[in-house]
């Protein structure tokens, strides 16, 4: 990369996205960290760092963290959120795998159409699709329950599991299954010893694409769930839009990000161990 032309090209290509991410991802992230240590403003927003009129609270504080770690209720909501996310991910995986396998094993000419059918629901509005579940679940007396929340979560996130799984399964060399069969493996053994382990990278990326958005989701619990079914996402939304306590919302967001990164780190470590051959 000593060639000045190449260096310039690299700057032109890499520069804009870098600046974009710096301005709209890294910087807001840092502002959020800072905000979580501040006091809320009287009418929303943040209180100034330095006192202006003397009466309102100003400067830095760890009060938000004290509240968070001092009350079990937050821990419980976090735990519940992770439980819902894990269950949604598992159900999506179990439902998506056969679909992805079916598409991957279909004749090449049919696959594009089947993938199109998987992403077709995105063509209609997300909220409309969730409200549709109210019409289905209402008469069955299943609305405003944990069950309804899970149904909605699985329904909305299923394509995010199907697509990475399909992308992975489609690349498998069919000769490997022939070899397995040739060497004495029945259909079940061929799946568990060949197809499944080779699809682990697809399972990991699909799981990440479902698990993480579910954690931050607030619309589905709000529409389909009862008051008890609120998740972290609802608390964050509440802090910003209802109680107008930005610092508290920032703190919750930050704790959620840290928890997700911790889980993603552990998952990535397992994924690397499982896919050493790739």
């Amino acid at each position: 990369m000593s060639n000045p032309g190449a260096r310039f090209a690299r700057f032109v290509v890499g520069g804009p996205p870098f600046i974009y991410l710096l301005l709209f991802f890294a910087l807001p992230g840092l502002i959020m960290v800072a905000a979580s240590f501040m006091y809320p403003g009287e009418f929303g927003g943040l209180a100034p760092l330095f006192p202006l009129t003397g009466s309102e609270e100003s400067g830095l504080t760890v009060e938000n963290y004290r509240i968070f770690f001092g009350d079990r209720v937050y821990f419980e909501i976090f735990l519940k959120s992770f439980g819902v996310a894990a269950l949604t991910t598992l159900l999506c995986l179990v439902m998506a795998y056969p679909v992805a396998l079916l598409i991957a094993r279909s004749p090449k000419a049919h696959r594009d159409l089947m993938v199109l059918l998987v992403i077709l629901p995105f063509a209609s509005n997300f909220l409309v699709r969730v409200y549709a579940w109210m019409i289905i679940l209402g008469p069955l007396d299943l609305l405003f329950s944990r069950f309804a929340v899970i149904v909605g979560m699985v329904y909305v996130h299923l394509p995010f599991m199907i697509l990475p799984l399909y992308t992975n399964l489609e690349k498998h060399d069919p000769t490997l299954l022939d070899a397995g069969q040739d060497l004495g493996a029945g259909a079940w053994e061929r799946f568990w010893r060949i197809t499944f382990p080779l699809s682990l990278p697809g399972i990991f990326s699909g799981s990440a694409l479902v698990f993480i958005p579910v954690l931050g989701m607030f619309a589905i619990p709000e529409i389909l769930g009862g008051k008890d079914d609120w998740l972290v996402g609802n608390m964050i939304k509440e802090a910003f839009l209802s109680t107008r306590d930005w610092p508290f919302g920032s703190m919750l967001s930050l704790m959620l990000t840290i928890a997700v990164l911790a889980i993603a780190g552990v998952a990535a470590w397992f994924a690397r161990r499982g896919t050493r051959y790739a």
Partner: peptide, 18 residues
């Protein structure tokens, strides 16, 4: 095929990569 005492060496070897 899985019941035949006949095995194949494939052109691509078809070794299980994992």
């Amino acid at each position: 095929p899985e019941k035949r005492p006949i095995h194949t060496v494939f052109q691509s070897y078809a070794l299980f990569p994992h």
